[in-house]
Every structure is written in C-alpha cells, then in structure tokens.
C-alpha cells in the first residue's frame, strides 16, 4: 500500500463512520420493535414517543405468549417447519446425489425445471393447491401445508445439495467401493459425513423458508388453533384495539429463532443465499 499512515487512519475512520450510521439506520426498525416490545401499553400511546422505555417490562412477552396464544402457534410453526425440512432433505439428498453423480437422460432439462419452478409466483400454485387440498380434504391440516411447502423447499434443497455433493471428489467413493462398500454404504459413510455442514445449512434454509411463510399458511389453514405464527400475528392487527407492544413482542418471538440460526450458520449463508442463483 502506498497510503501514508495518516491517510489510512482517516480512511478507516470514514468507512467506519459511514458503516456505523448506515447500519444504525438499517437496524432502526428492528431496534424500534425491540424497544416497543419492552414498553408498557401507556408508553406506546404517547406522542412524541419516549424513545427508550421509561419503565421497561418483559410483561408483553408473557402476555403475547399466553393471551395471544403464541405458545400454541409457535409449536404449530415448529412442527410444520421441521417436517417440511425433513421431507426436503431426505428427497433432496436422493435427487441432489443423483444429479451430482449420474449422467442421466434429460438431466439438463430437469435442472432447468428446478430453476424455473423457483421463479414462479407462489399465487400460481396457491389456487390449484387450494382446490386440490379441498378435494383431498387436506385444507386446514398441517399435512396439506407441509406438502405445499415442499413445492418451494424441495427444488431449493436439491439444487443446494447437488452443489455440495459435487464438491466431494468422486474418487473417495470409488476407493471405498473398490474396498467392497456398496454405493449406499459409500454414500452414508463418506458422502454424508463430508457434506454434513452443507446438509445442515440446507436444512436451516428449508426451515426458515417454512417458518417465514405467510401466504399459503394464511389460505390453507382456517381454524384458529392451527394457525402458523406469522399468520396469527398478522391476524391480530384486525383486532379492535391493537396492542402494538405485545404484537412487537410476538414479532420478536417469531424472529429470534431465525436470527439464532443465522448466527450459527453465518459462514454458509452467503454461499447458500446466492447458490443456485449466482453460482452453478
């Protein structure tokens, strides 16, 4: 570097200042959600607002969990998201492995198909799904919702896993098979352990996809007790009196699991987000 020390320090300060201010503005909606969730109701109805809560309380979280029945919805969302993830990973491993290792007729068309389905508007699937599910009596059921979430998570997981499996040299498997392993054994003993981080990352993405979903959950589930978290939160704004502090606490409860996943999976997120859309 040909920069003088003084110039370098100035640049560091400038970049940090710019990033700090931008990040602060960007995080403001989230900070406001946190601050609101800690305020007693009276404080949320003040204008101009108290920026920091005068009397911070965690009462809203308890109220959201009990009164808004978020406990039930949390379990619903958890169940549906975990099941969706399970289906997408099992089928995705098979499909991804096949696409990564075997030359097949129509492979290219299939890969294109996977890509294209990821680009279709969800509402295009929603209408026929609603009709199908009603005929199969799967509306208002978790099973119906899990099946429909597979539409989005399966192409996604196949695509990601294909990439992860491809990165493992096939020589490793061949060596194992020469030593007498069946292909299945070679897969479970070599491929699975080596691609475990990739599979975990894919699982997290599938989970988040299902956890965050709103449109299908809003349409295919009718009864109150079977609602997903996101739908339950949105439904509560049509209440006569919206308690924004409790609603923001509910928003935090919905968001925190996703953020925890993020912190653990940070390394893979950059790759995973853009994989299949940027890299081949």
């Amino acid at each position: 570097m040909y920069l003088s020390k003084k110039k370098r320090i100035r640049r560091t300060l400038l970049v940090h200042a710019a990033l700090f201010i931008l990040t602060f503005i960007i995080l403001l909606p989230v900070l406001w959600m946190i601050l609101t969730s800690l305020k007693p109701t009276a404080e949320t109805l003040k204008f101009p607002s108290t920026i920091l809560p005068d009397n911070p309380t965690i009462q809203n979280y308890l109220a959201a969990w009990r009164n808004m029945r978020l406990g039930t919805y949390f379990i619903n969302s958890l169940y549906v998201s975990l099941m969706t993830t399970f289906v997408a990973i099992v089928l995705g491993c098979m499909g991804g492995y096949a696409l990564a290792r075997f030359r097949m007729k129509g492979e290219k068309a299939y890969v294109m198909f996977i890509l294209v389905t990821r680009m279709f508007p969800a509402v295009v699937f929603l209408i026929p799904f609603f009709i199908m599910m009603r005929n199969l009596q799967l509306t208002d059921s978790f099973t119906g919702l899990i099946i429909s979430y597979t539409v989005f998570s399966l192409p996604f997981s196949i695509w990601l896993l294909r990439g992860f499996f491809r990165n493992i040299p096939s020589e490793l498997e061949e060596a194992a098979r020469i030593d007498g392993c069946t292909r299945f054994k070679a897969f479970t003993r070599i491929i699975l352990p080596l691609s475990a981080p990739g599979i975990a990352a894919t699982a997290v993405f599938c989970f988040i996809l299902a956890w965050n979903e709103f449109m299908f959950a809003n349409t295919l589930i009718m009864s109150d007790s079977k609602r997903m978290l996101t739908v339950a939160l949105v439904a509560s704004i049509s209440d006569f009196l919206v308690k924004w502090n409790e609603l923001m606490a509910g928003g935090m409860i919905t968001t925190i699991p996703v953020i925890i996943f993020y912190l653990f999976m940070q390394k893979y997120i950059t790759g995973g987000l853009t994989e299949g859309s940027v890299k081949g």
Partner: peptide, 12 residues
Amino acid sequence: LILIPWAVPSAV
C-alpha cells in the same frame, strides 16, 4: 448486522 432485516420474516 446488515443481514438482520433479511432474517426478519416478511410478515413480521
């Protein structure tokens, strides 16, 4: 930190 908005479910 700037990834956080992306993590927030769109309904929330």
